[in-house]
Nucleic acid binder design. Structure first.
Lengths: 212, 212
DNA sequence: GCGTAACCCTACGCACGAGTAGGTATGCTC
DNA sequence: GAGCATACCTACTCGTGCGTAGGGTTACGC
């Protein structure tokens, strides 16, 4: 063929990224099982055996997606967290970065959470990331508490952190479903819910069940 | 066969419940796709065609599970909510009932949320239930707000409710993973996080982003 | 005691989609 | 311009598991 090879030959590194882009897109739309390797290949502008040659089996491909998107997210958050700031400022910056990421990489978020959470083989991978996040939040709260001269049981701390992370993920889902919503404003709202409650706890205010 | 028919013939209503029990169990352990109709049938002590005869295809079976467990949950919550109580009391009773349900029907919860959330065909079904819950919470907050003479934008209200429901679901997951944890105590912890923050909002205290 | 309806089974068809075999073209090195 | 590695394709195999055909047995009404 002298004239125009319908599509160019590209170096491996480039194609791999295209494949990952396509995979993230298809996985997020269809879900892991409903997604077909053929569709992913087609969407990447390539044929199926290339996908297998570069990224391996379907599971390995999904893990690769998980890894790329997860790393992106963690970097976005880590880049915003200066460890010597006061707790509320750190929380605020972390949340802003997080919602910024979700707003920018909607599909990535969907893959990471909506899909990976349910599927057994990947739930573990996810849980690890999540646990690390929860530990960070718990550590932050603990730090702030000690600065106030107060203290709290480790289990209580973990549960509070769990709740905060859960609320944040929930709002992330909401953000992903509302394309016209503003990530920064969402972060502010989350801060309102999270910090006002947390600040109360920091000052020793607690709620007790009524004795009925 | 005169002696002993290895297993008895049972009326349809009974068998259907046994099948649903088995289905909920298998779905929650393996996940929707990894679960096999053969395994569900075996676990119910019956053969596969019976499952198809009574409950229909795999998807229909899953929907039936979703429906039964969802109804159980909603009833558990509704039974505890007296609409003329003050907001904090209503919230407390609702949460206690909810965590009680999750503690009692661990598999049911796993089916409802861990599985149904990811799978496209069922996500809608779930979202409806979830939305109803969120509306209830939002309505409760709005009611309490107006009683205080304050008011808040509908969108803000929705987002706060979203966050609270998300935090609650997250703690439910935590409870499902910690068999030895006490549902009532978990509800109290959730109340601490949710109500202290919400109460602040009710009194007009808000958090504003620093101008950096 | 005989029809009939409900309960229940073994054994199979068949589609669908992951993964592969085997071959072609293109560019890069010496 | 021979040799070689890399990019790329068409067309297949084959396991897996949903769903069903067709037939047997127990209970119940009359």
């Amino acid at each position: 063929m002298s004239s125009a090879p319908a599509f160019k030959r590209l170096p491996r590194a480039v194609r791999e990224q295209q494949m990952l882009d396509a995979a993230v897109k298809v996985f997020s739309r269809r879900g892991f099982h409903a997604a077909g390797m053929d569709e992913i290949a087609e969407d990447a502008g390539i044929s199926k055996p290339m996908v297998y040659a570069y990224l391996g089996t379907k599971e390995e491909l999904f893990v690769a997606c998980l890894h790329r998107e997860g790393t992106r997210m963690m970097q976005a958050i880590a880049g915003a967290a200066a460890p010597d700031l006061p707790a509320d400022e750190r929380l605020w910056r972390g949340l802003r970065a997080f919602f910024g990421f979700v707003g920018a990489y909607r599909d990535g978020w969907a893959v990471l959470y909506r899909q990976a959470r349910g599927e057994q083989p990947f739930a573990g991978e996810l849980a690890t990331m999540r646990t690390r996040l929860i530990e960070v939040v718990a550590g932050m709260l603990d730090h702030a508490l000690r600065a106030e001269g107060r203290e709290i049981a480790a289990l209580d701390l973990e549960v509070v952190a769990y709740a905060l992370v859960g609320a944040t993920e929930s709002l992330a889902d909401w953000l992903a479903d509302h394309p016209d919503a503003d990530p920064e404003k969402t972060a502010t709202r989350m801060m309102n819910v999270a910090w006002l409650g947390a600040a109360q706890l920091l000052h020793g205010v607690t709620w007790c069940p009524p004795s009925d």
